[in-house]
Nucleic acid binder design. Structure first.
Lengths: 175, 175
DNA sequence: AAAGATTGACCAGTCAATCTTT
DNA sequence: AAAGATTGACTGGTCAATCTTT
């Protein structure tokens, strides 16, 4: 086995920095979300995904693929959310194996109320701290890495972290 | 409440990209580490931190601060690792409240064997996929964000993800 | 047998309570 | 009372097994 190519100083800052940043960023945003909206990040992912599609309904597997979760994890999560009346499960006509996960009115309300603060939180902790060039660089970096890691198979319902519905809303495209 | 400033396309790519990248990267590296060395990422953090300090020993609180964990989490983790003979706990002369976490010979061996593959893994999934400019940009971005998030209070024992000891080793500075 | 989904047992992490030493 | 650390109960996630429909 050849002698390993250890990380140089910049590489080390990039890797360790990434680890710390992920950890701290996640903690900060989770904290904000919980305090302001009573939602976990996981809740938000699910609600946001549903809010972005026509009818607020998605097959369990589509939803799971979209947010890169295992079916099992999603089942557990949805069970809990169902108990809180944020989503509801419905059988799937045509393919009796399938199950739809559907946004309830309360779920819709929850995500729409949560979104503005959440976006603000993401800005405060990440985007507004960086220069526009850095934001662009981050977009490029993550796109490249994600493609390589096979997350390139893009999510059915786009990603989970957006503001609410892009559809019926009168809001400017929130992307 | 003012109308929220939704994310534009680049911002959205940066934020969602970060989320996906973190998730996928963590999964890939954890998988490699487990397969190649039988260690979890958490194990690696602890072992790496210890391997980087004189004597392979650190107070529990210092160790916890270094890797941004709660004392509670570290206690549980160390208890499990102690059972596997990777670390050992020792009382602290002088301050009887304190506890040292000490690398065992087996623990030292484990981290030293794991490190080369781990570094290779980090390169394969992240660093080698990026241009040198991107690596530098990532270092800059993460440094900025981490400082803002207060993780700026730098770790006592540096960060957790390095190759083994920088000290007695004959290796070129790996950090 | 494969796809869609759920379940239960188990493991890891969090939170609040506790204990000891300073 | 504060600092250092541990413990136990609870929550969330993983893995393997299961069940139904295709």
């Amino acid at each position: 086995m050849a002698t390993p190519r250890w990380l140089d100083e910049t590489e080390s800052r990039a890797w360790r920095g990434h680890l710390r940043m992920s950890w701290l960023l996640n903690a900060a945003i989770e904290r904000d979300l919980l305090r302001q909206a009573g939602l976990s990040h996981a809740d938000y992912y699910v609600l946001a995904s549903l809010s972005e599609v026509e009818g607020g309904r998605l097959r369990m597997s589509e939803l799971a693929d979209g947010i890169l979760w295992s079916k099992s994890r999603l089942s557990h999560q949805v069970a809990r959310m169902e108990a809180r009346d944020l989503v509801r499960r419905e059988g799937c006509a045509g393919d009796a194996r399938g199950t739809f996960c559907v946004l309830t009115p309360a779920g819709r309300r929850a995500i729409e109320e949560a979104a503005p603060d959440h976006v603000e939180s993401v800005r405060r902790h990440l985007l507004d701290v960086l220069t526009p060039e850095q934001v662009e660089a981050l977009a490029g970096i993550t796109t490249t890495v994600v493609e390589r890691l096979g997350g390139g198979a893009h999510p059915v319902a786009s990603c989970p972290v957006d503001p609410p519905a892009n559809r019926k809303s009168t809001r400017p495209a929130p992307a």
